[in-house]
């Protein structure tokens, strides 16, 4: 079963694309003799090859993805995005796989473009277990089995790339609360394997604005400890650190020509998806 995506590679294909004037050295097998017979000019026939697309969706399952300032977790938003993209890919006969990770690959589905595969993806997303944020909020000690996991992108990319045997499109949906250097190492591997990558960084609006004013005790959701402070006094410092991190992420993705999009969980899913698809189409057109 072939996918419906056009390959950016032009060459021998089943679908004619265009004519190109012959140049010395071109393969004479692709001369269009009928045109030569009519115009006495040498033209080569060019075809566009239709390729199948393997879409690998990576969804972050770390503890910080459970944060929700208004009841809508970042993971919820990421799961919806992953499900929507999986649905679109399967509808286009593309094979899709889903990988859930935190500091390592926790769960992965096989590549498939079966119509029933989308249900598998949704089930995997709906049954994914995150660290219980309520325990963190209550200041309870985390058990050994329930220690909130951090994001470790380098290790995850290693595991994912090992399963991909052909060039694929990888969609990474995460809050990327990891060391940018680790992310860069992971992106470098993908770039080396000529995979394509779309980075969707999902953040809660509270994380973007830090609106707290009352003295509070902040408890890290990935076992970073707790901190008592007057948030208003530290707001500017926090936002500066966050912006620095976001800038670093964007710079790294731009460095490897990967797509990057910051997704606010307070915003609808449609606009970022449309924006994403448009960006993808523009990228394919540019070939």
């Amino acid at each position: 079963m072939q996918g419906m995506h056009r390959s950016p590679m032009q060459g021998v294909s089943v679908e004619f694309a265009q004519h190109r004037q012959y140049a010395p050295g071109d393969d004479t097998r692709f001369l269009d003799w009928k045109v030569y017979g009519k115009t006495d000019k040498l033209y080569l026939k060019q075809y566009q090859k239709e390729t199948n697309l393997d879409l690998a969706v990576l969804v972050d399952l770390s503890g910080s993805m459970a944060y929700a300032s208004n009841g809508w977790r970042k993971f919820d938003h990421a799961a919806c995005l992953a499900a929507a993209m999986g649905y679109l890919a399967i509808k286009q006969q593309d094979r899709v796989s889903l990988s859930l990770f935190d500091d390592q690959l926790r769960q992965a589905t096989r590549l498939s473009n079966r119509q029933g595969h989308w249900r598998t993806l949704v089930e995997a997303l709906s049954t994914a277990e995150l660290s219980d944020p309520s325990q963190a909020a209550q200041g309870l000690a985390h058990s050994a089995e329930n220690v909130p996991h951090r994001t470790d992108l380098a290790a995850v990319f290693d595991a994912v790339v090992a399963k991909l045997n052909q060039r694929s499109l990888i969609v990474l949906i995460s809050d990327l609360f990891d060391d940018p250097a680790a992310l860069e190492r992971g992106l470098a591997r993908l770039h080396f394997r000529r995979h394509d990558l779309i980075v969707l960084q999902v953040l809660d609006p509270a994380e973007l604005t830090f609106p707290f004013r009352s003295p509070s005790e902040f408890i890290g959701m990935e076992a970073e400890g707790r901190l008592q402070l007057d948030p208003a006094a530290l707001r500017s410092g926090y936002l500066a650190a966050l912006q620095q991190h976001l800038g670093a992420i964007e710079q790294i993705t731009r460095k490897y020509r990967f797509d990057y999009l910051l997704v606010n969980t307070a915003e609808p899913l449609g606009p970022p998806l449309s924006h994403f698809m448009a960006q993808r189409a523009a990228g394919i057109a540019k070939g």
């Binding site: 003295p215 530290l234 650190a241």
Partner: peptide, 30 residues
């Protein structure tokens, strides 16, 4: 106020800690 502080589970703790480390002395002084 230290005892009655509201507890807030926080995902982006790494940035908060980083900001706190940078401004700890100033915050205490203030």
């Amino acid at each position: 106020s230290r005892l009655r502080r509201k507890r807030e589970a926080w995902g982006a703790m790494r940035f908060l800690l980083e900001a706190y480390r940078r401004h700890k002395q100033r915050l205490r002084f203030e």
